[in-house]
Design a protein around this nucleic acid. Structure first.
Lengths: 335, 335
DNA sequence: TTGAAAGCGATACCAC
DNA sequence: GTGGTATCGCTTTCAA
């Protein structure tokens, strides 16, 4: 492949001129630019990004850092981010910090980021102190989604409002005996979303003078498989709740399947509401609070691009993406 | 941050020695190496990957190219690839070629790859002629998953065997009236997996002297929402099949939900079998042919690393990952 | 075992 | 407008 020297030689100009011409800078005559562009095309010239980065100090690459990837929420975010960045000629370097030993994760390191990326987008990633110090020391712009990174802009939904919306939907239908699934196991206690959601459930119940029964609040990792197992004792008990708020749609689907297996009819015997509006939620006819995940990804990417392009201040701003109740078939008034 | 010069100065040696010492090359005395390493640590030195790449010609970055990302299959692959590559100090540059206009995709370009990555892994990506020519011209090692790239190694499952396994499971249960969903709409006719699966269904039926009824072969894009809608006419017809082979688990889930809505009991009135063993398949109690997606990703990554490390020949090899029938509750003998 | 110096392929400043 | 050239930070001969 050809270098800028080849182009310069073939076009009969200097490399400086080629560089200017191809990057659309001014101080290049139209004829010169045209000739250079033509030669570049003929020679299949594309500037070496590695050389460009070394000289300019910018990589046009953004690190996207996720604690998992296989979950729908994260994959959707990554997709949205990638496409938004690409529109501005930026690329995504992806880090899946999942460890083989569950309940742990790989830490962010200098060697993942240093001189490799211009900025970072974290996806629901609670950062450790050492990581925070690293990001600050490297002077990297960061935008957080979901879980905040101290001092950095944050894109999120209002978790409390989402759960309140779900819970009050059930209350509005006449439910009084309402359980909750999605309390966090201790090992992920540093993630805030689960806490905020659980707390909002409790607050909302209290606001309506409804009792929170400890045995109706069940912990579960956020998979359908686990929740299907974890909810069984609640559904089996003689006096069970008439409705369940699930912290996510995947959890909700687990609950629905468990109910079906136990002969508990949804929604006649049990109403179930989730949060997310996951890919399968429509087909499962699941009532849910929708969050626009793609919009969250786009917003974060644009926020970061603004900082990178304008060298603008990386403000400690928080953007909250609206949510929306989608009533479908898994909720109904209690029997 | 510090450069190799800072380290050299602080350690009282030349940059050449620092370079050798830190990369573990020989011809460095143990004492020198120790001193250099210590100084490097003290100064938080990490070699600039951009400078290293320019000098060495290698980026230690691999492009992972997918037509979608939000689908479970692709996200799982990407995750496996990222983790495998990271173990060998390689990174993933991610490209989601999905276009806003559905049924189309962004093409691979020189500027995505040239001097930016050392190799490419394609995920179920049928490459156009121009793209193939580009990959060859750039001399990039490529490993394909799912959809082959001519002349390059391929990691796949045996789609035909998978569908045969699913179909014969139904036949073995006594079914004779077996339908199929997952034929491709015309706009994605270039993807081969759907064709292979459909063809295998037809062949298997023929091998067992069973009729393939055209009205029981339904086209559908591969989402649960679509399949739930597309299967309705079949389920509604007076003489409907007693069993359905779905080209994927997501499709199968759509079928099951449609059946439920229409009052068709699964598996009493209708058996359903899928392919994948998707995240929700267990909780949905879906009989399926499992494919190990993580293993496919790992295998592809290792294949590519072999080529990159050993400068080995990029053989036109095909690795077929085994599949396995998982019998669960959505299949049973016909009434 | 170590060091000097020539690349790698662009950018960007400063003359002209 | 255009060209010369120092510079980015490392790798890699080649000598010593």
């Amino acid at each position: 492949m050809s270098t800028i020297n080849d182009v310069a030689r073939a076009a009969g100009v200097s490399v400086a001129t080629v560089s200017r011409a191809l990057r659309g800078l001014d101080r290049v005559s139209p004829q010169t630019r045209a000739r250079v562009e033509q030669v570049a095309t003929e020679l299949n010239f594309v500037a070496s990004p590695t050389a460009t980065s070394l000289a300019s100090g910018r990589t046009r690459v953004v690190a996207v850092v996720a604690p998992f990837l296989t979950r729908w929420f994260f994959a959707t975010l990554v997709s949205a981010i990638e496409r938004t960045l690409r529109e501005q000629d930026h690329h995504v370097l992806l880090f899946d910090l999942e460890d083989d030993s569950y309940d742990q994760r790989i830490p962010l390191t200098q060697n993942m980021l240093w001189k490799r990326v211009d900025g970072v987008i974290t996806l629901n990633l609670p950062v450790a102190d050492a990581e925070l110090e690293l990001l600050n020391r490297l002077g990297l712009p960061v935008v957080a989604i979901g879980s905040p990174v101290p001092g950095r802009p944050l894109v999120q939904i209002d978790d409390r409002a989402a759960v309140r919306m779900a819970t009050e939907h059930l209350i509005g239908l006449g439910h009084r005996r309402i359980g909750y699934i999605g309390a966090v196991p201790l090992n992920v206690a540093h993630v805030q979303t689960p806490w905020a959601r659980l707390d909002s459930y409790e607050t909302t119940m209290a606001d309506h003078d409804l009792a929170v029964r400890p045995d109706w609040v069940v912990a579960s990792d956020w998979t359908a498989d686990a929740s299907a197992a974890d909810i069984v004792p609640v559904l089996r008990s003689a006096d069970r709740p008439t409705a369940i708020v699930a912290a996510s749609d995947e959890i909700a689907i687990g609950v629905i399947q468990a109910a079906r297996r136990l002969g508990v009819r949804v929604p006649e015997d049990l109403s179930v509401v989730g949060i997310d509006d996951y890919t399968l939620s429509a087909v499962m006819d699941l009532t849910t609070v929708r969050q626009d995940v793609t919009l969250q990804g786009q917003t974060a990417a644009r926020l970061l691009l603004d900082v990178l392009d304008d060298d603008a201040e990386c403000v400690d701003r928080a953007v909250t993406i609206p949510i929306e109740l989608i009533v479908r078939g898994t909720t109904a008034p209690p029997a």
